[in-house]
Structure formats: C-alpha cells, structure tokens
Amino acid sequence: MSDQHHEVTVRRAQLPDLEGLVASSGALFAEDAGTRDPSININWPLEAGPERFAAGIDDPSRLTLVAESGGQIVAHLTGAVAEATARQPVKVATLMSLYVRPAHRSGGLGVRLVEHFSAWAKEAGAELAEVTAYASNSQAIRFYERSGFTSQAVTLRTNL
C-alpha cells in the first residue's frame, strides 16, 4: 500500500517505537473514549503507556504491532492471549487496541493489522478472538464485522 509516496510497513514494535506508540494510543483515546466515555482517563497513554507498552514488547502472550510510513508510526495494534481456564476452557486472543491515523484510513491498513493479529493468535494456540468497541462507534463495529467478528455480548451501564 502506498500512502503519500511512502510504503507502509507493519511490524512488531520495538523499544525505540515507544514514543510513537504512546502518541498513537493517545490519539485513539482522544478520538474514541474521549468522545464516548467520560469514565475513561484519556491521559492514560501519557501516564502509563510507556511502561505498559515496554512490558508488552517482549512478552510472548502479548502482541504489539506498529505500522510505519516515512519513519513515522501511523497505526498500532495491541493484543493478548489468555490461557484456558476452568470457566473458559479455550485460549482466547483479545484485540485490545487498534488505531489508524485518519490520513491512512480506507486503504486496507486496519485489515492488514487484524490479519497479523489473527495469524499471531492462531500460532499462539488461541481458538477464539475477541474485540470490544463502543456501541456508538458504528464505523468500528462495521470494520470488525467485515473482519469476521460477530456480536457476543452487550454491556449495559447506568450512572450512580
């Protein structure tokens, strides 16, 4: 895929990517949770992101991908695999975070990231993959449905 005359490369994140990962995560929080969920600390990526991302880079049960174009991180994906338990006797891969900068959307980059996630999850022995999206984020829901995800549960909330 070409974008602004630069190839977009999808790869596993490395420690030098932390600043770009934090920026990408911060953009996701501002755009998604920041407009949909007042209970979320939208400063979390700046406060805890560097430590959290650094811990996940070498953890075999976690996946941190970046998409790079022209030396800049233009997208990221994070995921994790949880071992089977007595309650849920299958390994489950959770796509925890996906963000593509607006200038790089609609060109298949999100699909590429999800494909990498799915391949990694299968290789890790996961039998199921899951992702959570805000009910009001219809674009994200449609994207994940096109990627093969289907609704499984609905979370209902009330203010107290």
Rank of each mutant, 00 (worst) to 15 (best):
H6R: 10
H6S: 15
E7H: 15
V8Y: 07
T9W: 02
V10Q: 02
V10R: 08
V10T: 09
R11V: 05
R11W: 06
R12S: 09
A13M: 08
Q14R: 15
Q14C: 12
Q14G: 14
D17W: 13
L18Q: 13
E19R: 14
E19T: 15
G20E: 01
G20A: 08
G20V: 13
L21Y: 02
L21Q: 07
V22I: 11
V22W: 00
A23D: 06
S24E: 03
G26S: 14
G26M: 05
G26V: 05
A27C: 03
A27K: 13
L28P: 07
L28W: 04
A30C: 06
E31G: 09
E31P: 00
A33S: 14
A33Q: 04
G34V: 09
G34A: 11
T35R: 08
R36L: 14
R36D: 06
P38S: 14
P38R: 15
S39V: 15
S39L: 15
S39P: 04
N41L: 13
I42L: 12
I42G: 05
I42Y: 07
N43R: 15
G49R: 01
P50N: 09
E51P: 05
R52Y: 12
R52T: 05
F53L: 00
A54S: 15
G56N: 11
I57T: 05
D58N: 13
P60G: 07
P60Q: 03
S61F: 06
S61K: 13
R62P: 07
T64H: 04
L65I: 07
V66E: 04
V66P: 09
E68C: 03
S69K: 06
G70T: 13
G70E: 14
G71W: 06
G71F: 07
G71C: 08
G71R: 09
Q72E: 11
Q72F: 01
I73H: 11
I73N: 01
H76Q: 14
L77E: 02
T78M: 13
T78E: 05
G79P: 11
A80T: 12
A80H: 14
A80E: 12
E83G: 14
A84Q: 07
A86F: 06
A86P: 11
R87L: 12
R87E: 12
Q88L: 13
Q88E: 13
V90Y: 08
V90F: 13
V90A: 04
K91T: 07
V92S: 05
V92W: 07
A93K: 03
T94N: 10
T94G: 09
T94L: 13
T94S: 14
S97I: 04
V100M: 00
R101Y: 05
R101D: 06
R101S: 12
A103S: 08
A103I: 01
R105W: 03
R105I: 02
S106I: 00
G107P: 00
G108K: 10
G108V: 02
G110F: 00
G110Q: 01
V111M: 01
R112Y: 00
L113Y: 00
L113Q: 04
V114L: 08
E115S: 08
E115H: 11
H116I: 02
F117N: 01
F117W: 06
S118P: 00
A119P: 06
A121R: 00
K122R: 15
E123D: 15
E123Y: 06
A124S: 15
A124E: 13
G125W: 02
A129C: 08
A129W: 01
V131H: 09
